[in-house]
Simulated assay, not measured.
Amino acid sequence: MYTSKIIGLGKFVPEHVVTNEDLSKVMDTSDEWIQERTGIKERRHIKKGDGNSTAIMGLKAARLAIERAKIDKDDIELIVFATLSPDYYFPGCGVQIQKELDIKTCPALDVRNQCSGFVYGLSVADQFIKTGMYKNVLVIGSENHSGGLDMTNRSRHVSVIFGDGAGAAILGRSDDESGILSSHLHSEGEYIDELSLRGPSTEKWVPEIIAENSQEDIPYFPKMNGQVVFKHAVSRFSQVIEEGLKFNNLTKEDIDMFIPHQANLRISQFIQKKLGLKDDQVLNNIEKYGNTTAASIPIALTEAWEEGRIKKGDLVVMAAFGSGFTWGSVIIRW
């Protein structure tokens, strides 16, 4: 059995900054209200004409990760793309990346696990490397939320949360004791409707929606039961982190860097306090980018590495929770 490790990281966020004050001009909200409930000050949105999309942002992050990994793009043997906002209904973004990188025949697959997407994607890549099937795997998390948000009072409690961006990691075989120690994945479909976007879908195609011409209870904007999501998030975060630590005979005192999915600053602070971690042991950047779903962990991980906050030998814990409900953790010896 081989061990996989992250050998290259990259991120990309659009240049267009949308502040809380900007949102207060189009809906009944305020900077104070948003910061108090989410910790978010601003987020990045794709701007019409800037050439960005879910796949293109993922491509830009991937190219940087490949460069930093010091490998050739043709060394990539598998592409795993995590997103809830693909450019096309089908095919998925994975093959778009393959085309843009001009990689001829490597397999490409898409992971649709929303906020847990990158954690699930890392787990998939890790298994392929562990079994010896592939040596280098590209994992991407990318989201274009802004084009699908309802910027009216009807959805103000949801639309203020999300931002656009992408992060990428190259996984390769480890030649020492560093690398991914374990990953732990869960889901609980009982809560499928607490955080969801139901249409367009095969249940309700676009022509049907247009024909109805109704502005009531529009199904093609995200909806969220915030209280239920928060309650389950703080519980599942803690459980899946403890699961990972216990599996590796580690304790919370062994953690050097915790990188949570950037869902809500209050959730991250709750988990930080429960783990007894100092501020410099946690990477929070939700105040700058909002919730970028599958992109949030790779963006945060890249920033932690770029800022020199992760060094060789550190124990890095990543955890995510989101729609589905799905949740998971990855334990890494850097």
Rank of each mutant, 00 (worst) to 15 (best):
T38Q: 00
T38V: 06
T38W: 00
T38K: 00
T38S: 06
G39P: 09
G39S: 11
G39L: 08
G39A: 11
G39D: 06
G39I: 11
G39R: 09
G39H: 08
I40W: 05
I40C: 07
I40L: 14
I40Y: 05
I40P: 04
K41S: 15
K41I: 11
E42R: 14
R43H: 08
R43G: 06
R43K: 12
R43I: 08
R43N: 04
R44H: 15
R44N: 13
R44M: 10
R44A: 12
H45S: 05
I46S: 02
I46A: 02
I46C: 01
I46N: 00
K47L: 13
K47W: 02
K47Y: 06
K47P: 03
K48E: 15
K48R: 14
K48D: 13
K48G: 10
G49D: 04
G49T: 08
D50M: 10
D50A: 14
G51C: 06
G51M: 03
G51P: 03
G51Y: 03
N52M: 14
N52P: 08
S53E: 13
S53A: 15
S53C: 15
S53Q: 13
T54S: 12
T54C: 15
T54H: 01
A55H: 07
A55I: 09
A55Q: 07
A55W: 04
A55E: 07
I56K: 02
I56L: 03
I56W: 00
M57C: 13
M57R: 04
M57K: 08
G58D: 03
G58M: 08
G58T: 10
G58L: 05
L59M: 12
L59F: 15
L59V: 15
L59S: 06
L59Y: 15
K60W: 07
K60C: 11
K60M: 13
K60A: 12
K60P: 10
K60Q: 15
K60I: 14
A61T: 08
A61R: 03
A61F: 04
A61W: 03
A62I: 05
A62E: 02
A62Q: 00
A62C: 04
A62N: 01
R63H: 05
R63K: 15
R63A: 01
R63I: 06
R63G: 03
R63Y: 01
R63T: 13
R63V: 09
R63F: 01
L64H: 05
A65P: 00
A65L: 02
A65I: 04
A65N: 03
A65T: 06
I66A: 05
I66V: 12
I66C: 09
I66G: 01
E67P: 08
E67A: 13
E67W: 05
R68Q: 09
R68G: 04
R68P: 04
A69I: 03
